[in-house]
Design a protein around this nucleic acid. Structure first.
Lengths: 211, 211
DNA sequence: ATTATCTATAGATCTATAGATAATGC
DNA sequence: ATTATCTATAGATCTATAGATAATGC
C-alpha cells in the first residue's frame, strides 16, 4: 500500500513530466529537469516510473484518450436538429482545445517521431470514428434529401471542422503575434472570433447553394 | 576557395541534416547520425558548420523563407477575378505544402520550443502579411459592394485557407491511416479530394447567402 | 600553402541503478 | 517489514576539438 505522502510526490512528478514533455517533447525533455520541477530527487523518478520511456507513455496515453474524447464531443447532441448540433459540437470542440492548447501539437509530434506507439490505438480509433461518421452521414443525407442543405461527405466535413478548430492552436506561436497581439485580452478576443469563424464556415459549407 | 570535392560533402551534410532535423527536431537529431547519413566522418560536420546549432539554423532559415514564400503564393494572380484568384491561390498553396509535407510541423515545433529564434523574422512577416491582407480586403469589400459576395474579414479568410490546407499534413500520421489507407495511390486520391474540399469550402465561405 | 579529411579523445550531459538511511503501517 | 527517500556513481551517449595526414591549387 502506498504511504500517505507518496501520492503527493508521485503526482508531482507526473504533473512536472506533463509540462516538460508537452513543452519539449520526448527527446528534449530531461528527467533531471522533471525531478527538479517536481521538487524531488532524481532517483525518485526512477523509483516510481522505472524509465523515462515509461513515464512518457503514461503521459502520452492519458493525453491521447483526452484528445480522442474531444473528437467525440464534436458530434454534439444527437437529438438536436443538424445545424444546431453542428454549432454546439464545433463550439464544444473548440473550447476543449482552447483549454488544452498544447495537446494537439504534442500528440502529433510524438506519433510522428514514433509511429509504432500509435499503431495500437489506430484500429480502435478508426472503429469509433467509422461508427460516428456513418451516423453523421445519414443525418447529412436526410437533410439534403429534404432539400434543407447541400449534399456533403461527412468525413470531409469532419476534417474541415477539426482543421479549422485545431490549426490556430498548433500555429499559435507564429499566428498570434501577427494577427492578434501579445496581451491575454487580445488573445481571448481573437480566439472568440476564430470560434465564430469556424462555425460560420462550416454552416456555409452545407448551406443550400441554389434555393 | 573551396576545393572541387568539398561542395559535394558540404552539400551532403546539409541534405542529411535537413532530413534528420525535420524528422526528429533539434533535440532529437544526432550529429553523428547526420554525418553517417551524409557519408562523412563526424569531424567534417564540425569542420564545415562548427556547431550543431549553427547547422540547424542554416536549415531552419531556409525552410522559414520557403514557408513564407508559400503563403505569398496563396494570394495568386492579382489580375484575376476574385473567385478565380482564390481558386488558384489555394491550389498553389496546397500543392506547395504537398511537396514539402514535413515543413509546417518542423517550423511550428522549433518556433514553439525556442520562440526567440522567431522574433527576428516576426516583424518582417507581419509587415508583408499586413500589406497583402489589406490588398485582399479591398478586393473582398469591392466584390461585396457589387453584391457578388458576402462581406468577410480578409485575415479570417486567410487563416481559414491556411488551416484547411496545412492541417491535413501536420496530422497526416494520425489522419491518413484512418481516412485514407496505407498505399501511395490512396494517399494521392485523398489529397486530391482535400484540395478540392479546401477550395469549395472557401468559395462557399464568401458566397452570397440571400441572393 | 591552403583546404579537406581522418583518428582519437576530452569533456559534458543524461539515464539509470546500487546501496544506505529514514519514514510508515501493522 | 515494507515503502519512501537520499547520496553517490556507473555507464552510455553526444558534441566538440586537437592534432596528424592527405589532397588540391598556385
Amino acid at each position: 500500500m502506498k504511504g500517505k505522502h507518496s501520492a503527493n510526490k508521485e503526482q508531482a512528478i507526473l504533473e512536472a513530466a506533463e509540462r516538460e514533455f508537452i513543452a519539449k517533447g520526448f527527446a528534449g525533455a530531461r528527467t533531471t529537469s522533471i525531478a527538479q520541477a517536481a521538487g524531488v530527487t532524481h532517483a525518485m523518478l526512477h523509483y516510481y516510473f522505472r524509465t523515462k520511456e515509461h513515464l512518457f507513455e503514461r503521459i502520452l496515453d492519458e493525453k491521447m484518450r483526452l484528445l480522442g474524447h474531444s473528437i467525440l464531443t464534436t458530434f454534439g447532441d444527437v437529438n438536436l436538429p443538424l445545424q444546431q448540433r453542428l454549432r454546439e459540437g464545433i463550439s464544444n470542440h473548440f473550447d476543449f482545445i482552447a483549454q488544452n492548447p498544447g495537446l494537439p501539437r504534442f500528440i502529433v509530434n510524438e506519433v510522428f517521431s514514433a509511429p509504432e506507439r500509435y499503431e495500437v490505438m489506430q484500429h480502435r480509433i478508426a472503429e469509433i470514428a467509422g461508427a460516428i461518421l456513418s451516423d453523421l452521414q445519414h443525418e447529412l443525407d436526410a437533410s439534403a434529401a429534404r432539400g434543407e442543405t447541400d449534399a456533403v461527405d461527412a468525413r470531409m466535413l469532419m476534417l474541415d471542422i477539426v482543421s479549422l478548430n485545431i490549426f490556430i492552436f498548433i500555429g499559435e506561436p507564429i499566428i498570434l503575434p501577427i494577427f492578434a497581439g501579445a496581451g491575454p485580452a487580445e488573445r481571448e478576443a481573437f480566439l472568440a472570433r476564430r470560434k465564430a469563424e469556424s462555425i460560420e464556415t462550416i454552416l456555409r459549407r452545407i448551406q443550400k447553394s441554389n434555393p
